[in-house]
């Protein structure tokens, strides 16, 4: 219970989602905290003091000049949301970037299940769907044909440690857009580091475990 409370508190503290979560800290958290089944929710900080490194990510948005540490806002099991520098947030589903918020030209939603399956299978073809918001408030759907290729084992610097990881490149082609995503998977098949495409305006989000 305490964990849940603090988890939401953390959202406020990280400057993420800004004043909004500030209010959440005082307001919503008690409700969640009294839930008997709230255990998987926002399992953020473990007690006082330093945050659990498993809830932190190192992120970078080179085109926007934003780099720093992102904090996990919520862990929903199938997906997890993080708050990065200057309040932007993003959601990963099994390591695949599915949405961003607070970046302007946000990635609204994604279907990257085939790409994830291809990573798991050691490579292959995948079709992906990205949704963005256009100037008329309409959801724009873009489909991409992607090829996932294994690139061998590399040493990845996660900041706090260096690990051996299998690298995969995903090369995607849409009607008017090409992009390349990179992934590094650990022995268990989890994505521990990646560079994934967000949108034309934002380009790539780099995120890695600490």
């Amino acid at each position: 219970m305490t964990a849940a409370l603090l988890g939401l508190g953390l959202m406020a503290g990280c400057g993420g989602a800004g004043g909004l979560t500030g209010a959440l800290q005082g307001a919503i958290a008690p409700l969640v905290g009294t839930q008997p089944t709230a255990a998987p929710v926002a399992a953020g900080a473990s007690g006082k003091g330093r945050a659990d490194p498993s809830t932190l990510r190192r992120v970078g948005l080179n085109t926007l000049g934003l780099t720093g540490t992102a904090t996990r806002l919520i862990d929903n099991g199938v997906s997890a949301s993080f708050a990065g520098p200057q309040g932007f947030t993003y959601t990963m589903r099994d390591g695949m970037l599915v949405s961003t918020r607070g970046l302007g030209d946000d990635l609204m939603a994604t279907d990257a299940r085939q790409s994830r399956a291809a990573l798991r299978a050691g490579g292959g073809q995948a079709r992906r769907v990205h949704e963005t918001l256009d100037g008329l408030d309409r959801i724009e759907r873009a489909e991409f044909d992607c090829t996932v290729t294994p690139k061998g084992v590399e040493t990845v610097d996660l900041g706090t440690r260096r690990v051996q990881a299998r690298r995969f490149d995903e090369s995607c082609r849409g009607a008017a857009l090409l992009f390349d995503n990179y992934y590094w998977l650990d022995a268990a098949g989890e994505i521990i580091s990646s560079r994934q495409f967000v949108s034309r305006g934002v380009a790539y989000l780099r995120s890695n475990d600490l």
Binding site: P40, I74, N76, D105
Partner: peptide, 26 residues
């Protein structure tokens, strides 16, 4: 001026709070 092309794209709205997904039996 093109009304359909916003100078700030879809908007610089601050990120909303995340969604909590209830687990199983809950």
């Amino acid at each position: 001026i093109d009304p359909g092309t916003r100078p700030f794209g879809p908007g610089l709205d601050p990120a909303p709070s995340p969604i909590r997904i209830r687990q199983g039996d809950a």
